[in-house]
């Protein structure tokens, strides 16, 4: 091969193009994907169990922790009302989505909310108590697409994420 460097960049460019096209298809799927419906179903069940019959916004969020040679990820389904936040830890299998019991965070318990830089397409949210201790830390993305096992869902939630942020702004101004 006369130009191995050129070939390397060619292969790299094709790889990037394939991933980009895949993410476009995944975004289309994510508008009404089975994962999105399942998460909404889980939250609906949790809200009924907790006798919350008012309006709420449901979103999918995650938290990733990177170490030198490994990373850990936690996944959540979150329902937010004007007064309470229901955080449901999720577990992803190959085909199944499991959930643990919901943790309820009341507006009064949260002293400070850090929402990172304003505007989308993602928000890094930290909820802190009176002592400044972080009680919940997660990343909310408007568009989630499958990449590998660390990013297991196609969920597009542009309107939901913005509505969620609006309610959080109200929580901030209590």
């Amino acid at each position: 091969m006369e130009h191995p460097v050129l070939m390397f960049f060619g292969v790299f460019a094709v790889g990037v193009l394939v991933i980009w096209i895949k993410s476009l298809f995944d975004e289309k799927k994510g508008i009404d994907s089975p994962e999105k419906r399942k998460i909404e179903e889980i939250l609906q069940k949790i809200m009924q169990e907790n006798k919350e019959f008012g309006e709420y916004v449901s979103v999918y969020a995650y938290q990733r922790e990177d170490h030198a040679r490994s990373s850990r990820c936690w996944y959540y389904a979150i329902a937010l009302t004007a007064e309470k936040m229901y955080v449901v830890p999720l577990t992803f299998g190959d085909k199944e989505i499991g959930h643990a019991k919901a943790v309820v965070i009341e507006k009064d318990w949260v002293d400070k909310i850090d929402t990172g830089k304003p505007g989308g397409p993602y928000y890094c949210i930290k909820c802190m108590d009176n002592n400044g201790k972080v009680i919940l830390d997660f990343r909310l993305e408007e568009k989630n697409t499958k990449l590998d096992k660390t990013y297991p869902v196609n969920i597009v939630q542009v309107e939901e994420a913005r509505a969620f942020m609006q309610i959080l702004e109200q929580w901030k101004q209590k």
Binding site: T91, G93, D94
Partner: peptide
């Protein structure tokens, strides 16, 4: 085979 899916079915949900 299907260790995690079976775990979810058996213990969660």
């Amino acid at each position: 085979k299907d260790a995690k899916d079976t775990f979810i079915k058996c213990y969660l949900n």
